[in-house]
């Protein structure tokens, strides 16, 4: 499902070249739930960005869902993300002017699905995360945990193969965090979604089947 071969990622800051990922090799099987842990600056979010097609490797091969991302154009990468990837961010990143249902519907605006069907699919996704009764609520009317569940509904509404989650419980209290992690486990077990999650929280990582520890751009 996800295969990174000899991946190097560097950033240029002024005259200085910073190597964030240094010849990384990793394979994540289809249907797996894997956590990426490591200190700040270890490269875990950079790795997540490469897997999600948000960024490009400086060298090496990034193959996700049978697609070689390193040879794709920006437009192809955008289409790839829309089709194969579901995103969950630490700070939920919902659109404040849209209701929960509309936020979930957002990725479907890029498809040719008719409006009525889009709404049905968004409602279904909200039901999966247990928020069908909050469909017409705006983000400001929801708790942090509920907002993150709406974000998860948005991540799955396109039925992506992979869900990438960047610190999905970072802004939540323990109880809400546990609910989110349980939901991710459900998506992994019941809906066979491959999940790649960046976290600082060992408790969160314990929900994953595999945990990778990154330090200075390499696995420990």
């Amino acid at each position: 499902m996800v295969q990174l071969t000899n991946v190097v990622k560097t950033f240029q800051r002024g005259a200085e070249v910073i190597t964030v990922l240094d010849g990384l090799n990793v394979t994540i099987a289809e249907g797996s739930f894997e956590a990426l842990m490591g200190p700040s600056g270890s490269g875990k979010s950079t790795l997540l960005n490469l897997v999600a097609g948000l960024d490009r490797a400086t060298s090496g091969v990034v193959n996700v869902a049978g697609q070689d991302l390193t040879t794709m154009t920006d437009g192809d990468l955008a289409a790839f993300r829309a089709r194969y990837i579901g995103f969950i961010f630490q700070s939920y990143n919902l659109m404040p002017v849209l209701t929960a249902l509309e936020n979930v519907e957002l990725p479907l605006l890029l498809t040719k699905i008719p409006s009525a069907d889009r709404k049905k699919r968004a409602a279904t996704a909200l039901r999966v995360v247990g928020l069908e009764d909050r469909a017409n609520h705006y983000p400001r009317m929801l708790s942090g945990g509920q907002e993150q569940r709406v974000a998860i509904a948005r991540a799955i509404v396109n039925d992506p193969k992979i869900i990438v989650a960047d610190e999905p419980t970072g802004d939540l209290d323990r109880k809400s965090a546990d609910q989110i992690l349980a939901l991710l486990e459900k998506l992994n077990k019941d809906f066979k979604k491959t999940i790649v999650m960046v976290t600082h929280d060992p408790e969160a990582a314990s929900h994953a089947r595999v945990t990778h520890h990154l330090n200075k751009g390499a696995f420990q």
Partner: peptide, 14 residues
């Protein structure tokens, strides 16, 4: 800006 980043991540184009 961050919202535009989210939209781009979801597959929206420039």
């Amino acid at each position: 800006t961050q919202e535009y980043g989210v939209l781009r991540a979801l597959g929206f184009l420039p």
